[in-house]
Simulated scan of single mutants.
Amino acid sequence: MMWDWVPNQRLGPIEIGISVETYVGQLGAQLLAEIDDSTGWDSYYIPHHDVYINAEDGEVVSISAHKSFYYGIKNVLGMTIEQLEALLGCKADEIGNSVEYEDGDIQTPYDYSGLGLVAWVSQDVIVNVVCTTYEGLD
């Protein structure tokens, strides 16, 4: 399956704004956690693809990938932030605060809000990418 990204719309076959139940049936998405206290979202996992879906009120609000996230013919995962910005043709709108995980890994989010994209960087390499959309929001 090709996990190609279309900004503000989808990753692979998963579309933002569509009922998450569609992907439970089509892709075998499994519920991981109901209603995260910090976001109010339900989290789902798609086995064998290392793809996660967050849903609010039953609709997909974000998709994250740790293995395959293609823009054009290039997999963004494993790139440096400079390579990603050359591919996108723009710089991040915001660089967020770094987060230290239990295993000692420190990751920093680079937010491209106009594209609905957040790239998480660890040791100068993109390790996770989250796509969503901010279109239509005030």
Rank of each mutant, 00 (worst) to 15 (best):
E34D: 10
A65H: 03
Q9C: 01
R10L: 05
I63Y: 01
Y101V: 03
T39S: 15
A92Y: 03
Y52C: 09
N8W: 00
A119S: 05
R10W: 00
E15W: 15
Q123K: 14
T39D: 07
T108Y: 01
E21I: 07
I18W: 05
T133H: 00
G17I: 05
T39E: 03
I14W: 01
Y110K: 06
V118G: 00
M2G: 04
T132D: 08
A119D: 09
G96R: 14
V6Y: 07
D37P: 12
C90R: 13
L31A: 13
S68A: 09
Y110W: 13
Q30R: 15
V76A: 08
G58Q: 09
N54R: 09
V125S: 14
E21V: 10
Y101M: 11
G28L: 12
T39Q: 06
T80R: 00
L31N: 13
P47V: 06
Y70N: 10
G114T: 06
Y70G: 01
N97W: 07
A33G: 15
P13E: 15
K91V: 00
I53C: 13
S38K: 11
G96V: 03
S43W: 06
S19N: 14
D37F: 07
Y101C: 02
N8H: 02
A55Y: 03
I126L: 04
I16C: 07
S122N: 13
T80F: 02
S64V: 01
Q123I: 10
L88V: 05
G28S: 10
T108C: 12
Y44R: 06
V20W: 08
P47R: 09
Y45T: 06
S62D: 14
I46S: 00
G28C: 10
P13V: 12
F69Q: 04
K67D: 15
C131E: 03
K67P: 08
M79C: 07
D42K: 05
L32M: 15
G17V: 07
A65P: 00
Y23R: 00
V99C: 06
E102W: 09
N54A: 13
V51S: 09
I126E: 05
D37R: 12
N54K: 13
H49P: 04
E85M: 12
A55G: 05
K74Q: 13
G58S: 09
H66F: 15
D50N: 11
E102Y: 09
Q9V: 02
S122W: 06
N128G: 04
H66Q: 07
V61I: 13
V127I: 14
T108V: 15
L32K: 15
V121M: 08
G72R: 05
Y134T: 14
G17Q: 07
T133P: 01
P13I: 13
W120K: 07
V118M: 04
E135W: 03
V99T: 05
Y52G: 09
Q26A: 15
S113D: 12
Q83M: 09
G116Y: 04
V121D: 02
D111P: 02
